[in-house]
């Protein structure tokens, strides 16, 4: 019972966090700011999936969470590398 209440509050908090990240993603002002926002979006999506897994009592969502965490990290590193190197070649 208390678990359901806690999950409800947690869903609201994580959804609000995703909203804030999205606002930062749209607002910028610089490219690295947007990359941080994207990275945080990935991590918060992992949180949302974990909560959904507990709520539905299914461990299946774990694989999706792991994959999103992996892809998010690779994406962030690739974007940073592009920023660091794209400028050197000019």
């Amino acid at each position: 019972m208390i678990l359901d209440t806690a999950l409800g509050i947690a869903f609201v908090l994580v959804a609000a966090a995703l909203g804030l990240n999205f606002w930062r993603l749209l607002r910028g002002p610089d490219i690295p700011d947007r990359i941080v926002a994207l990275d945080t979006l990935y991590v918060n999506t992992v949180a949302l999936l974990v909560l959904l897994g507990i709520h539905l009592g299914s461990a299946l969502y774990f694989e999706a969470a792991l994959l999103i965490a992996l892809m998010g990290f690779v994406g962030t590193v690739a974007l940073c590398k592009y920023l660091l190197r794209g400028d050197i070649i000019e």
Partner: peptide, 28 residues
């Protein structure tokens, strides 16, 4: 259940605070 609820609320709270920091702090 109380332990789980505590951990989940703590986690959600920190997740929210982290994103709040991303949204409101002054520079990159």
């Amino acid at each position: 259940d109380y332990l789980l609820a505590f951990l989940i609320l703590l986690g959600a709270g920190f997740t929210f605070i982290g994103s709040l920091g991303l949204a409101r702090l002054p520079d990159f």
